[in-house]
Nucleic acid binder design. Structure first.
Lengths: 333, 333
DNA sequence: TTAACAAATGAACACGTGTTCAGTGGTTTG
DNA sequence: CAAACCACTGAACACGTGTTCATTTGTTAA
């Protein structure tokens, strides 16, 4: 751990000098490319260890025209499902030897700036968990050979791979469960200005219900999150309507709706059944014990990274649209 | 938006050629350094715009020996306060023109690998929100002139700046509130293997209580999070003990403890008072309406970045230990 | 008119790495 | 024994930028 250069970081040049070989051999050892004699490798590793040498990723990326970075676009981390999704992505990104470049975006402008900056860092891939990337940016990524994949969203460009939870399967599981519990009138609860994934979940549920020739009431929440669900319950009760089975677009709406109903003297599972989406920690709490659809975050993250790597090797492959199976976690409601 | 080079990305060289100037002038324009005539600047900007030129951050960082990246160490994003802290950090990092390099660590080994990788990317700074960075790594960062700052933790190295929520102030606010509500026997609830910040909060509370010559019961949760709090309440009631005021180390313990007490027929604010830490969304929900200490995430993030920039300019400045004021959010309990 | 000066510019180097290409020596094959 | 082959090595170039230094140009002071 000496430091022969005044304050400057040690480079492959220094290692080469100490080991008595050329810098090219040092590079070969650390990039695991080309042949190098066992004896030389040993000398180099020892010298590197002594100096505390570490590859400069900026120089490496500059030369390879590609860094080990992966850009991740997120939004509204306060939503517990989103943060658990980010957690899964981070874990998988690190496991594969990459580093995550995370940016939070609030509007389309920020998304544009973000993706532009990602390409300036020569990222190996971009993961979009929120927002719709504009057409010219996607084109730019394609030109730079930067793979893009979207999670739980719809993107109209054939170069962008997609990984979604299987909303059709979720709808079938929920319908089956509610019907098995004897529900007669079933409703779908969603926020009025929901994201694409929320809308898609509703469409799928509608479709499944139609297949079994049942009507589907729609409850529209005027606000998002817990408060939105709670208020929706109050409005629902005030209007004197009645259902015995509710499927909610996400966990927060579900918890809010359940609490709202409780305030009106109705509780699950006694008076009605309710099933949520996103198996967030809160839904598991004793005060809720909410039956809910569980999205497989690990598998989603795994699939995302294999998409990135596949398209990184061959940018011309067909678009991949993968649906990740979901599970129904049956609890109390 | 032409692309005169076959598939390759446009460089400053191309812009210079099109504008009829030297590459040096292009560099001067985009790094805002040195003088350049108004007319030439205009020509360069126009050419750059036409070609869609963007600075290559890897080359820039390689030359400047410093990238615009800031490494952020996180853990357990499923904890809602941690994700909101990350959200605040991201927002501030982007506002200042940096990019966040986020890594999740589970143990000391991962932390070591992570910080090592951060230095390999020549980050402008490192933010540690979890774990204790080992001594030699901190030394390494200091040698590379990489500022390190810790949030809500204790680090024994004078080169590492610290930003903490003011736990003493929190303790005083809570004590004042509980006493004003007429509480006679007051307790402190924490997880047995809590982090430093949890322990510190307890110590401060103990100290404040001692100053007013009051006893402080300690309730020790054998598990962390919501379930830990809930079980602690059951054990507490089973032992037949009794208090009328509880201060909890974090929001999840508080919610769990409250629910556990409710299962035993006791509820706040009627039978006892309870105050949590971390003003998470769940504590605001109607079913809890928990009185809680609010940490100022925005100010924390702001302070973190000004520490980084200050030490980035002059690495030899004195250690800064800043305590961020907290607020007591009075709700129902 | 000349000297002194400030602003603007381009050539050249440095940053630290990956990779090609031409060699070297040693071993196998005909 | 010559030829062909193989593993191994080092010199040199490329990646795209920031920055120094010398030079040119235009302007002011003596």
């Amino acid at each position: 751990m000496k430091n022969p250069r005044g304050g400057r970081s040690v480079s492959a040049e220094d290692v080469a000098k100490l080991a008595g070989v050329s810098r090219a051999s040092v590079s070969r050892v650390f990039s695991d490319q080309g042949n190098v004699a066992r004896e030389t490798r040993k000398k180099i590793l020892q010298a590197a260890n002594e100096l505390g040498y570490q590859v400069n990723f900026l120089a490496q990326g500059l030369n390879r025209k590609r860094s080990q970075l992966i850009g991740v676009v997120v939004a509204r981390l306060s939503d517990p499902f989103r943060s658990s999704l980010l957690e899964g992505l981070l874990s998988e990104i690190q496991r594969k030897g990459y580093q995550a470049l995370v940016t939070e975006v609030r509007d389309a402008d920020e998304l544009e700036m973000t993706i532009r900056r990602f390409t300036q860092f020569r990222v190996s891939g971009v993961v979009v968990t929120s927002g719709q990337p504009p057409a010219d940016l996607v084109k730019e990524c394609v030109q730079h050979n930067v793979p893009v994949v979207g999670i739980n969203r719809h993107v109209e460009f054939p170069e962008v791979d997609l990984v979604c939870s299987d909303n059709k399967m979720a709808a079938e599981l929920v319908a089956e469960q509610l019907i098995a519990c004897g529900c007669q009138s079933i409703a779908w609860l969603n926020y009025r200005e929901s994201t694409w994934s929320g809308i898609n979940r509703g469409d799928m549920f509608q479709q499944v219900m139609a297949e079994t020739s049942r009507d589907l009431f729609e409850i529209v929440a005027e606000a998002d999150g817990y408060e939105g669900g709670r208020q929706a319950a109050h409005v629902f009760c005030a209007e004197g309507r009645n259902v015995d089975g509710v499927f909610c677009a996400n966990a927060q709406l579900a918890c809010g709706f359940l609490d709202g109903m409780r305030e009106n003297g109705l509780d699950a599972p006694h008076d009605f059944r309710i099933i949520g989406f996103d198996n967030t920690p809160q839904t598991a709490q004793y005060s809720y014990r909410l039956t809910t659809i569980h999205q497989d975050v690990e598998k989603t993250a795994w699939r995302v990274l294999s998409c990135l790597e596949a398209r990184g090797k061959d940018p011309s492959i067909d678009q991949s649209i993968e649906e990740i199976p979901v599970k129904l976690v049956i609890r109390n409601t």
